[in-house]
């Protein structure tokens, strides 16, 4: 299908983008990689009046080491993260997650800032961000991941607010992300992440609710010395996923447990 008509402007700085958003008003949208926004527009599920293209803002595409942190410019593409030597060394789980997003086209275009701002329940980075206590930096403030992913496709971002950076802690201990899907280029039906960090486990889940989930009950059980298999039984505690064409709620909860167990066992 063909999107409804819209205005288009290309910004060369964050300030300019923010100004353009203000000028266009409520129905304007930032365009980053376009791999979530454009499909919605083509189906006319989204009909923004204007697009502010931020792809020309050169200084939003970077990966910087900063002591015990890694800073990702919002426009950093999945392919860059997947292939980055620094990320592979300091935060290997994120490089692995990036390598399993969509297909080459998606990875060449999609951005880490776009995934965060889009806040799809099946997005993979948000799970890692939540689990590792990452921060989302905008042109106005810094927001903790746990305060950012509040509901389906819903974030605290204001209409003229632009995500500029994601900040992750360095974490290079044993880790594993298991993305369960039917096809290589599919979104996760359910995903489970395990990361050993500062002597404890961090466990995150994808697509088992309206937001990413941190499985604290599993983390606690592991902390108390439970075996992975026992601890993983808690992965579905408190979950209330909705069913869809690919999976019933029961199946999703079951997958949360199985994948969590496997992620912990396979973490290397």
């Amino acid at each position: 299908m063909i999107p409804a008509a819209f205005e288009y402007a290309r910004a060369s700085s964050v300030e300019e983008a923010s100004k353009l958003l203000k000028t266009f008003g409520e129905d304007a949208k930032v365009l980053a990689g376009g791999h979530s926004l454009i499909p919605l527009m083509r189906l006319r599920l989204a009909q923004p009046k204007a697009l502010v293209d931020i792809n020309g803002i050169k200084d939003l595409d970077y990966i910087k080491e900063d002591g015990s942190k890694l800073r990702f410019g919002a426009l950093t593409r999945h392919v860059t993260i997947e292939n980055s030597a620094v990320v592979k060394q300091k935060l290997p789980i994120l490089a692995e997650v990036a390598s399993e997003i969509g297909d080459n086209q998606v990875r060449n275009m999609g951005t880490i800032g776009g995934v965060a701002a889009h806040a799809d329940a099946a997005g993979d980075y948000p799970t890692i961000a939540l689990m590792l206590d990452a921060e989302i930096v905008t042109n106005q403030r810094t927001i903790a991941a746990k305060d950012f992913f509040k509901d389906l496709f819903t974030t605290p971002l204001a209409a003229d607010e632009i995500v500029t950076e994601l900040v992750f802690p360095v974490a290079n201990g044993p880790h594993k992300y298991i993305k369960f899907r039917r096809r290589l280029f599919d979104w996760a039906i359910v995903g489970a992440a395990a990361q050993k960090m500062n002597g404890g486990w961090r466990i995150g889940l994808t697509n088992v609710g309206t937001t990413p989930v941190r499985a604290t009950a599993v983390e606690e059980a592991l902390h108390k010395g439970a075996k992975p298999e026992e601890a993983a039984q808690h992965a579905s505690d408190g979950l209330n996923p909705s069913g869809d064409l690919r999976a019933s709620p029961e199946y999703k909860k079951h997958l949360a447990r199985v994948l969590t167990k496997r992620a912990i066992e396979q973490a290397g």
């Binding site: 499909p39 189906l43 096809r183 290589l184 064409l245």
Partner: peptide
């Protein structure tokens, strides 16, 4: 039609 896009209808690709 509930499977109205190719997101809802799984055509296998080379990976499958």
């Amino acid at each position: 039609l509930r499977t109205g896009t190719l997101l809802d209808y799984s055509i296998p690709g080379t990976g499958e």
